[in-house]
């Protein structure tokens, strides 16, 4: 697979009143590597991915996705185009069953791919749902109410929903937050599996996770990009060391 740049931001800026959360960021994603964004709290990581996923609109600058300027598109449009965001704090339909949660996502992506105007048959949906639940290891939980799942499983359900949306770019916002060590290892294995078919953009605090997964790392600080490179380059970057060790 040739290395192709499929998403880039051009002088992207987001201000809240007097505060600039993201400032003139030129950021680029290529299709042949797992990309991670790291940085201290308030560095602008989440704002940046919010801008990419369309949950917020930029103050200035643009986002080019596969050659098209998407900066003014709604978040729903971007999901349809394949940019799928997975929440930092799980955002699932707590009162609905796991089946319904994933079916909601499946239904949309099937409708788009099969170009059906009205309905996709329920048996096709069911098929895809069990596949998605199976891929994250939640088989057999179809009828359980999502809100009653343990927290780790809720995160997995969230990932299953994202996968079912047929993403081209999957944004994982702090996927390991709040998980136990064993669960983290499972999740790393799962993400490695996912990246075989999907481009992953990872936002993460846990450095062990970053260095075991990422092939390219962007370091953000106070709303700007401070350094970029392979994990080993980043590890040896003095500025980054200073930032993290607080010297």
């Amino acid at each position: 697979m040739a290395s192709v740049e499929f998403l880039r931001t051009d002088r992207l800026t987001r201000q809240y009143g007097g505060l600039t959360a993201v400032k003139d960021v030129n950021f680029s994603l290529r299709n042949d590597r797992i990309h991670a964004i790291i940085g201290p709290n308030g560095a602008g990581k989440t704002t940046l991915v919010n801008l990419i996923s369309g949950r917020e609109k930029p103050t200035s600058g643009s986002i080019i996705y596969k050659g098209e300027d998407i900066s003014q598109q709604s978040s729903a449009k971007r999901v349809q185009a394949g940019i799928v965001y997975t929440f930092q704090v799980t955002s699932i339909f707590r009162n609905l069953s796991c089946y319904e949660n994933v079916a909601l996502s499946v239904q949309r992506s099937l409708k788009a791919t099969q170009r059906k105007f009205f309905m996709v048959s329920e048996s096709v949906i069911a098929n895809h749902v069990s596949k998605s639940l199976g891929s994250v290891g939640l088989s057999g939980k179809e009828n359980q109410t999502a809100g009653t799942l343990p927290y780790g499983h809720q995160k997995l359900l969230e990932v299953a929903m994202s996968l079912a949306a047929a993403p081209e770019l999957l944004i994982l916002d702090e996927p390991t937050q709040g998980l136990a060590q064993a669960e983290i290892e499972n999740l790393i294995a799962l993400i490695l599996e996912i990246t075989k078919s999907v481009n992953v953009l990872l936002i993460e605090h846990n450095m062990a996770v970053v260095f075991s997964l990422a092939e390219y790392v962007t370091v953000m600080n106070s709303g700007t990009i401070m350094a970029e490179g392979t994990p080993s380059e980043i590890e040896n970057n003095h500025e980054v060391q200073d930032l993290y060790l607080g010297n």
Binding site: A76, R94, L96, S105, Q107, S109, M119, A165
Partner: peptide, 25 residues
């Protein structure tokens, strides 16, 4: 009980999330 009903119930339960699943709420 059709797929449309499922989307409507999803809107009732969590409108923002439904939007982020790619639906025009």
């Amino acid at each position: 009980l059709s797929p449309i009903g499922r989307i409507l119930i999803a809107i009732r339960e969590n409108e923002a999330r439904t939007q982020l699943l790619g639906y025009n709420v």
